[in-house]
Amino acid sequence: MKGFGILKGLGVTLKHLVDTYVEDIKAGRDRYYTEDGVRQRMTSDTKGIFTINYPEERLPLAEAFRYVPFLVYDEGEDGERSIRCTACGICSKVCPSQCIWIERAEDPETSKPLKTPAEFAIDIDLCMNCGFCAEYCPFDAIKMDHDFELAVYDRIDVNIHRKERLLKPASYYASIRPESYALEQKAKAEVAARKAARRGNR
């Protein structure tokens, strides 16, 4: 029968429409603007339309999610910052878009190079968020961020992130990537224990 195919198709759209409302009524107020509601709408059992109403609602970000990089510093007990970066330059060498500039600090008296950056700049207009810098950093000093809301009015000045802007505490890193942080801490503890044992043997 001519027209049957169209009717069948219209049946599918009707089902989608009904599904959405049935789900809404069933879940009541819990479906929207709640964390559980968002999570439910992300599973494969979800029915009907599952739009997330950004910015009122947000998708929970996966731990692996990566956006522009930041530098990690450890906080000492007296609030002193110790920057993990040693200015070795690996991140600026692996960067595909060459958006990282590092100026190595010098000892003011002997003018020997120090293991810390005097200046560290990332042009985030160039950054393609590939994550290579974080991947290959041997000191866990540069990591990819979760903060993706970086729209600005003046990109020329603001979109070059310099050292002060890039530095974030290790506790922040631990809060966005708890699993990787735990793994890294474990590995560090093992290395430290091995060193201590070797010293003890001697």
Binding site: A87, G89, S92, K93, V94, C95, P96, Q98, I100, W101, I102, E103, R104, P113, E119, A121, D123, L126, I156, I160, R162
Partner: peptide, 21 residues
């Protein structure tokens, strides 16, 4: 033109950032 191949030399150890524009 910045260089034949990456990595470019002016990025490290005396990197001074400049906008492409």
């Amino acid at each position: 033109f910045e260089g034949d191949v990456k990595p470019y030399e002016d990025r490290w150890p005396e990197g001074k950032v400049s906008k492409v524009e």
